[in-house]
């Protein structure tokens, strides 16, 4: 029995804790005994070369993928595991279903439901999963669509919306579940350059006015530097270096970080 991972984290623990998390795809190790804490209201950016495991961090936290080793805790409780006979065992689907709503995710490709309007996209989950009435769910969805500047487009299907508009609806859809932590997976990577700004503005306001806990995987170095409380540089499934944006971008210590920043900043 694994004794390094408690069944419950003590009071005052971080909102999210990765404890020795390993994730492999076949022979390939994408996350290598990762330890990472995310505090309440913290905005953490994850940067790094492709294949460094940064998107996988979000995917395993969203429970889209199972981990091979270690435990992820959310809100003091284990998420990937559940208590059993004094130790921990892998979560059942039912256990996950009771906890997954604490986490919201926005995808690179938006993944809106194409057969539903913007409003319907935002109403479904609160009604079905949280049990809200249609009136309450619609009121909540409308407020959020207004928040992301998409109120007027509430009756449009996604195919009628630009990429930036779709992504803003996707953000509203995730927010409608009132998650404790929002995961943003390269949310501007699929967008045309001229609409990236409108999505970044939404994230900016979520951070400054609503103080959401967010983990953001991004290639927008300028944005990460501006908005983050902390930046983590991933390399080969591990955090090679982390720190405040000023420190990581201004005075990187790790050789890999220097090389990476050099390469991406040269390119832009």
């Amino acid at each position: 029995m694994d004794t390094t991972h408690p069944q419950v984290l003590p009071e005052g623990s971080p909102l999210v804790r990765f404890s020795g998390v390993t994730k492999c795809y076949g022979p390939l190790t994408v996350l290598d005994k990762l330890d990472l804490d995310i505090a309440q209201n913290e905005m953490v950016s994850i940067i790094g070369p492709s294949g460094s495991g940064k998107t996988t961090v979000l995917r395993v936290l969203m429970t889209l993928e199972k981990i091979n080793d270690g435990v992820i805790y959310v809100d003091g409780e284990p998420l990937t595991h559940m208590p059993k006979a004094g130790g921990l065992t892998f979560s059942t689907e039912r256990y996950l279903h009771e906890r997954r709503s604490k986490i919201g995710m926005v995808f690179q490709q938006f993944n809106l439901f194409p057969h539903m309007t913007a409003l319907q996209n935002c109403v479904e989950a609160p009604m079905q999963v949280l049990g809200l009435s249609r009136e309450d769910a619609e009121e909540r969805a409308l407020n959020l669509l207004e928040l992301v500047g998409m109120g007027e487009k509430k009756d449009q299907h996604p195919t009628r919306l630009s990429g930036g508009q779709q992504q803003r609806v996707a953000i509203a859809r995730a927010l409608a579940m009132r998650p404790k932590v929002m995961l943003l997976d390269e949310v501007t990577s699929a967008l045309d350059p001229e609409v990236i700004g409108e999505v970044l503005n939404v994230i900016r306001s979520l951070n400054s006015e609503h103080n959401l806990t967010m983990i953001m995987v991004t290639h927008q170095m300028g944005f990460a530097r501006e908005i983050s409380d902390r930046v983590c540089f991933f390399y080969e499934g591990k955090i090679a270096e982390q720190g405040s944006p000023e420190q990581l971008f201004g005075d990187p210590q790790n050789e890999r970080t220097k090389q990476f920043l050099h390469a991406v900043l040269d390119a832009s």
Binding site: S101, N111, A125, Q128, R173
Partner: peptide
Amino acid sequence: VPKSQWEACRALNFTTGY
């Protein structure tokens, strides 16, 4: 139907039936 639609549903915590 793209796999990403399944992932969106999972992220919104829908049941498989739903």
